[in-house]
Design a protein around this nucleic acid. Sequence first.
DNA 1: AATGAATGAGCTTTCATTCAT
DNA 2: TATGAATGAAAGCTCATTCAT
Lengths: 214, 214, 214, 214
Amino acid sequence: MTAESQKGRRASKDTRRRQLIEATIACIAKRGLGDTTLAHVSKTAGLSQGIVNLHFTNKVNLMNETLSFIRDEYEQAWKNALEKAGDNSARQLSALARIDYSATVADPKRLAVWFAFWGEVKSRPVYKKICQSRVTDYRLILVGILNKLIDNGCYKELQATNIADSMMSMADGLWLNMLISSHVLKRKDAEKLMMQYLAQTFPQHKNYFLDSHS
Amino acid sequence: MTAESQKGRRASKDTRRRQLIEATIACIAKRGLGDTTLAHVSKTAGLSQGIVNLHFTNKVNLMNETLSFIRDEYEQAWKNALEKAGDNSARQLSALARIDYSATVADPKRLAVWFAFWGEVKSRPVYKKICQSRVTDYRLILVGILNKLIDNGCYKELQATNIADSMMSMADGLWLNMLISSHVLKRKDAEKLMMQYLAQTFPQHKNYFLDSHS
Amino acid sequence: MTAESQKGRRASKDTRRRQLIEATIACIAKRGLGDTTLAHVSKTAGLSQGIVNLHFTNKVNLMNETLSFIRDEYEQAWKNALEKAGDNSARQLSALARIDYSATVADPKRLAVWFAFWGEVKSRPVYKKICQSRVTDYRLILVGILNKLIDNGCYKELQATNIADSMMSMADGLWLNMLISSHVLKRKDAEKLMMQYLAQTFPQHKNYFLDSHS
Amino acid sequence: MTAESQKGRRASKDTRRRQLIEATIACIAKRGLGDTTLAHVSKTAGLSQGIVNLHFTNKVNLMNETLSFIRDEYEQAWKNALEKAGDNSARQLSALARIDYSATVADPKRLAVWFAFWGEVKSRPVYKKICQSRVTDYRLILVGILNKLIDNGCYKELQATNIADSMMSMADGLWLNMLISSHVLKRKDAEKLMMQYLAQTFPQHKNYFLDSHS
DNA sequence: AATGAATGAGCTTTCATTCAT
DNA sequence: TATGAATGAAAGCTCATTCAT
């Protein structure tokens, strides 16, 4: 048995896990965390009853892995966006902020899943940890960019960490509004509000935020 | 033992309902929506198994009523705060914004309950409706205050509805941060960030937001 | 306190019991034995929750008393009918047979109750006993009448007990048909079938059974 | 252990359903409809708690299927008996009538189950329908046979439908007597009474009913 | 690796019964 | 005598998990 075939097998195993996690996301979005059963998940995945226990041992584990999965997905998204933004700090800030309202990140299903898990954070230390880990790297990078921007421009009175926390809070709150009032606040509206905040905070770089840099 | 005794075989219907709702809030905060059973609720209330069905018919109804209860509580809080603020728009804005970080409103248990229900909003139309109803009145009043402030001051370029949405989003996001990173972001910190946003948005009224008007 | 007032009190107590038994009959007819709860009974009687336990100690007792009540009612009915029939055996037989299809005895609610209890006879010795007691006297009297008729007429080959059992069986079966196919087999139809059986069995007394002696 | 093993983790769906229905019949006969719980049924079947819900979805469905099962069983029985009877109408009538007192049809458990369901007919439309369906075919066939017999013999004055209804009523009533007074009226006694009725109704074919054609 | 019948603990709900008023 | 809030045992049902195939 060659290394190749081994890899093929392992790949197929990963495919199953991925397939089940996607099914889990779909179920949570459709019926909420509390009403998502393993029967629903396996049926959605088009597989058999016991399949989740086979690949994830138990339900708790499946849920943890699902949360980790969307956290990783999110991280991938903003890191990609950042890479494409080049070296300019204002451009980086814009890219980082905008990614939260892109079709893939602000996908209704994803939002529903984030809030489903946030709803249990208080009572589930594991969820709390994973949710915290979502923002640690992000916040570090964001503060770094903000500091550069503050230094380059003449925003001596601003505090990078404060702005970072305000931005991140506003971003999460906009997601909540998109979830609860999806018919009123759409992705583009939310993005505009965020960009207005940045434009107001960094008036010298206004044009980076107000022009349509999709 | 008072006439409004919390225990024993006799109590007014409202007392019992209130008592059970408080127990429900405590349970949701402690173990999450999904792991809150009627046995937990009745035990927490110091009453018997069947008591919830007696007073709320079924679990679904208990949950709806619990959510409605904290929404009413929230409404009461900001309306009270507004009344005390007098006629000055900036003072009103400050009061309205600050109430979200008061000990009673930003009570950890209450926050946990809000997020627990928000987590199910996508899959439960009733929760969605109640959560939406929480902000309709609030937003109307807030926009009114903002418009007055914009007219009085020289903030011609500002749009009241945009600021209202940004404020409300930031507020919710700060709540999430207080929930997830309670050890880092405390009530006072969150309030400070919100006040900074207001000070930055309405620089002429800066002093209304930055001085400590607890 | 006079004997009179004592009697008044006792009478009122009996009224309550009667009222509750009637409510029980109505409930059993409406929802069956299995779905009849004490809450239904007391509500139907327009009284409070605990009233049945007050007057009948417990549910089992209420049911036994209800069954005994309709048995007594039935006994009263055929004894009255017999008394009115006079001394003629054929006339007595006719009266006895016809009473089963009178409006009061073959009342749909009563039929439903009889079958409800018969349905539990196998597993409830008390019901069995009461149901048996319904027919012991009846059968004795019936056999007596039949013997007289056999002696008077020239029915030497007939066996009174056999005819009694056949008659009683047919009567119960007609009740079942009236219960199950109430739209097809009405009281008068059932009565006609029974009378035909008697006319055929006692051809010399045909006219006692076929004329309309309502 | 055969392929159609009654126990163990694997058995065909039909085997399990049949096994559970038999257990249900046994429970109803033993404790009545009202006191038959799913725990009793599954325990009687030697299986686990949730097994009924797995195979019948819910209790109501199990009961409906159980009733349908004994109705089918009954139909099978009289159709078989009829087939064996050959072409002679009197012989057919005798066979059809006698089957009600055969060991398999007039099995005490079966009788108890019939009466248990009849007891709920008034309040359960589904039971009513199934119970009605038990006799529709039967009555048609019976009337057909009676008509032939009436034509062949000289029973011009008889009405086939009347006789059919009388026969069927008497049969059901005899079942009730066997249920309530099992120690007095045995299967053979009941059969004799029914045969006497037929002999009396069709005197020219007397010998078909009175001789012992088991 | 995958299936799905079977399990059984635990949930919501019902309801006969109790008891303070 | 009568009420009805409260109780708690027991019911039906769900569902994560197991395991023979």
